[in-house]
Write a protein that binds this DNA or RNA. Structure first.
Length: 803
RNA sequence: GCGGGUGUGGCGGAAUGGUAGACGCGGCGGACUCAAAAUCCGCUUCUGGCGACAGAGUGGGGGUUCAAGUCCCUUCACCCGCACCA
């Protein structure tokens, strides 16, 4: 009889699994693809917060194996990106050297989890054999007109010295370093994700994802219906196009506002206003977007020009204000102060007229103290007077189309994806610029375009990649005409490699395609995807876009890559997120050494509901460790004294199986762990009385424990005399006829207040139970009139009494 | 402002409308021990009482119901996401 020596057991069991791996793949079995978001292998290593998602997905994978599935559960490295490059700059080593070192450490740490990862499928986005296909997808997008170059004002992070996609500059801050971004005019590669806006939105419905993430994506895409309307500029041969979702309010448009960046802003400003306008526009340009968003006081300058309301011919003043954004809609708006809060504010501040065109009851209001944005009936709107505003949206828009002064349109917040980065450590964009032929893609059979060695990785201030200084690499010949040409020197963003990696796992060593069609068909799409919520509008949106494109070119046969998404909660320490910055991060290495992998695995589940944030508490791990000690002792003892199961033992076994399976299926993993504790305690009691446990009960407990604490389960399986792995077994089934107890405790209430409880035969009839209840409560019921008797079988009796 | 989430003992947290506080941590008491650690057993929501017991109790206020942590209305606090999106 030994003590539960987890260090020794885990070492031994791991060695066994190395020698005789659990046989997972078997085409006779149904398949299940369970995926973790692959990590960026940072220099800091993993903390116990990372473990949570990895443990969740591994519990599911192992459970599915016991349920008779073949399970693909892979792991890899998203290893391009700035930290590796910054590390390289600081230490004057090649980024790949740092990456190799970090990957090694990450792999070691991940192996400590003892997940059933198929390490033979490990991938690394920085491997040329991998990024060959990242480049191939880009070339295909280029050929389909989805990758294009454009010069435009872009988000620029002064610290990272690179442009950012809109998704990386949310709230006007760099997603990575939180530096306020500035705008810079640059020529960059873009991916036309907007061409997929509608499908990216529509596809969300079919997904079993957290509502929150679906909502975030749908708001990011930001579809709205409305109309574009042309407002002629009085006395000029110009028209200003505006977008509005409220064509029904057009009669109430009493002024217009252009964004400071609008091309007409300067042109239509009259001489006397020009100085003030220039000053205003200069200030707006200098304001960081953070400031511009934070300061909600309306400011603006009158251009001195007027527009013509195309419906009623009224002359309305045109202003310039920074509350109008250049990159949404047309960068110009018609302003209806009576029915828009922002326009109302602006009108009040600058003394502009306010015309009510919709009222709740169809009668004009005395005075508007605030904008009325609700529904109602149209007034002051010519022929439309009296129309309900809901109908009027359509009616006015139709009328505008008829008259040729407007068109119904759909507008999106989603912008095209800024895809090039002015940094070294990324996939080179496989394009060659030829003076004669323009941008020419590198022929597919010449991919990958290898990332060359350079003398310095230092990013530049100019918006040029460090690759631009490598004349010998930059100068090449045009694949089309053979003339002199230059390579594109920008690299791809970090998101490129992660936008399709889940496909590569199906067939990671394929030399002729991104993955074999049959392998893709076998494993994809991903059945269960586990990761943090922080990628809601980054990786998860990009991956969906890539998948839809690959579907369109026939490379894959599905449009949505991830059927089910689960966002695990964070592990916090003293209320704060454990993150890279370090101080409050707890390393799993030390915890595993002190309590063992199985204890930490179970603790990560026990800590709280998997979808909620939970506070790290090391003392609770000791509790889990004590629990595993008790299991060890129980099984070991019961092996010495095997007994035949009596009715009571069978009942408890079946209840245990039923309860734990139920909780697991409901993904209530914290209560699965408490269920193990509860039933192990009960079994220990029974075993004390009966002198041992029966074989079937013992086996059921071990098998069910296996996905959660695989090492101890495997070793206990040996102790009970088995040669083969516990993972060859099947998850036990509960015999539902054995769930009922022989006796039940019934709570007794009077007027809903608990007064007593009685234990009765489970088979007892309603009358028998009520009689027993009356008997038990006789003193309290004496002389009272029972108005009503409620009996919930096996649970409760409630007497409603009077007097 | 909009969207999402969370409020339950000293702490983490359990509860298909049916005995609130499972399970664990911590605490208290006991067994074992020369002793300690480990382990095992018992108690542990609060208030009052030696006590059996009584009363209160799931952020606050209302409501539905024989019965509400759970359903409805309302309100407060904290966390997260988005935010002048026309």
């Amino acid at each position: 009889m030994g003590k539960y020596n987890f260090t020794e057991i885990e070492k031994k069991v791991r060695a066994e699994w190395e020698k005789h791996p659990i046989n997972i793949y078997d085409d006779k079995k149904p398949r299940f693809y369970c995926l973790d978001m692959f990590p960026y292998p940072s220099g800091k290593g993993l903390h116990v917060g990372h473990w949570r998602g990895y443990v969740l997905s591994d519990v599911l994978s192992r459970y599915k194996i016991l349920r008779g599935f073949q399970v693909l559960h892979p792991m890899g490295w998203d290893a391009f990106g700035l930290p590796a490059e910054n590390f390289a700059i600081k230490n004057n080593v090649h980024p790949s050297a740092g990456v190799a070192e970090n990957v090694e450490n990450f792999r070691r740490q991940l192996k400590e989890i003892s997940a059933v990862y198929d390490w033979s499928r490990e991938i690394n986005t920085t491997d040329p054999e991998y990024y060959r296909w990242t480049q191939w997808i880009f070339v295909r997008m280029f050929k389909h007109g989805l990758a294009y170059e454009k010069e435009m004002p872009l988000n620029w992070c002064p610290k990272c010295k690179a442009v950012l996609a809109n998704e990386e500059a949310v709230g006007g801050e760099c997603d990575r370093c939180h530096t306020p971004v500035t705008k810079r005019m640059l020529r960059q590669w873009m991916l036309k994700i907007t061409a997929y806006a509608d499908r990216l939105l529509g596809g969300l419905d079919s997904l079993d994802w957290p509502e929150k993430v679906k909502k975030m994506q749908s708001e990011w895409i930001g579809k709205s219906y409305g109309a574009e309307i042309d407002f002629p500029v009085a006395g000029a041969d110009e028209a200003i196009k505006v977008f509005t979702t409220r064509p029904d309010t057009l009669y109430g448009a009493t002024f217009m506002v252009l964004s400071p960046e609008h091309p007409l802003a300067e042109r239509i400003t009259v001489e006397s206003q020009l100085e003030e306008m220039d000053e205003y526009r200069r200030k707006a340009a200098a304001k960081s977007s953070v400031n511009r968003m934070a300061d909600r006081n309306k400011t603006g300058v009158f251009t001195g020009s007027y527009g013509i309301n195309p419906l009623n011919g009224e002359k309305i003043p045109i202003w310039v204000s920074d509350y109008v954004l250049i990159d949404y809609g047309t960068g110009a708006i018609m302003c209806v102060p009576a029915h828009d809060e922002r326009d109302f504010e602006f009108a009040k501040k600058f003394g502009l007229p306010i015309t009510e065109v919709i009222s709740r009851d169809g009668k004009p209001s005395e005075e508007l103290s605030e904008a009325y944005i609700g529904e109602g009936f149209m007034i002051n709107s010519g022929a439309f007077d009296g129309t309900p505003s809901g109908e009027a949206k359509e009616a006015v828009a139709d009328y505008l189309e008829e008259k040729g002064i407007g068109t119904k349109t759909v507008n999106y917040k989603l912008r095209d994806w800024v895809f090039s980065r002015q940094r070294y450590w990324g996939e080179p964009i496989p394009i060659i610029h030829c003076e004669k032929c323009g941008a020419v893609p590198v022929p597919e059979d010449e991919l990958p375009v290898l990332l060359p060695e350079v003398a310095s990785y230092q990013p530049t201030e100019t918006g040029e990649s460090p690759l631009a200084n490598m004349d010998s690499w930059v100068n090449t010949t045009c694949p089309r005409c053979g003339g002199p040409a230059k390579r594109e020197t920008n690299t791809m963003p970090q998101w490129a490699g992660s936008s399709w990696y889940f496909l590569r796992y199906a067939d990671p060593h394929n030399q002729t395609a991104l993955a074999d069609k049959d392998a893709l068909k076998k494993w994809l799409p991903v059945d269960y995807y586990v990761g943090g919520v922080e990628h809601a509008v980054l990786h998860l949106l990009y991956a969906r876009f890539y998948t839809k494109f690959l579907y369109d070119i026939g490379a894959v046969e599905f449009e949505e890559p991830f059927i089910k998404l689960f966002n695990q909660g964070m592990i916090t320490n003293k209320g704060h997120k454990m993150d890279k910055s370090g101080d409050n991060s707890v390393s799993p290495d030390e915890i595993v050494r002190r309590y063992g992998c199985d204890s930490l695995r179970m603790y990560e589940l026990f800590v709280g509901p998997p979808e909620l944030d939970s506070e790290w508490d090391e003392r609770s791990i000791e509790g889990v460790n004590r629990y595993l000690n008790r299991v060890w002792k129980l099984i070991e003892d019961s092996c010495l004294k095997s007994v035949k199961a009596d009715r009571r033992m069978k009942q408890i076994r079946n209840k245990m199986i039923y309860e734990i399976t139920n909780r697991l299926e409901r993904w209530s993993l914290n209560t699965v762990v408490s269920g193990f504790m509860e039933y192990t305690n009960k079994l220990a009691d029974i075993a004390r009385q009966a002198g041992g446990l029966d074989k079937e009960t013992r086996d059921s407990l071990i098998i069910m424990l296996a996905p959660f604490a695989p090492h101890i389960a495997e070793e206990l399986w040996r102790i009970t005399g088995r040669e083969a792995s516990v993972f060859n077994e099947r998850w036990p089934e509960a015999d539902e006829t054995m769930l009922a107890e022989d006796t039940v405790t019934v709570a007794l209430q009077i007027n809903g207040k608990l007064r007593d409880s009685i234990t009765v035969d489970a088979e007892a009839s309603r009358d028998e139970v009520l009689a027993a209840a009356r008997q038990a409560l006789s003193e309290r019921l004496d002389g009272k009139e029972i108005v009503k008797e409620i009996y919930v079988p096996g649970r409760i009796v409630n007497f409603v009494i009077k007097g």
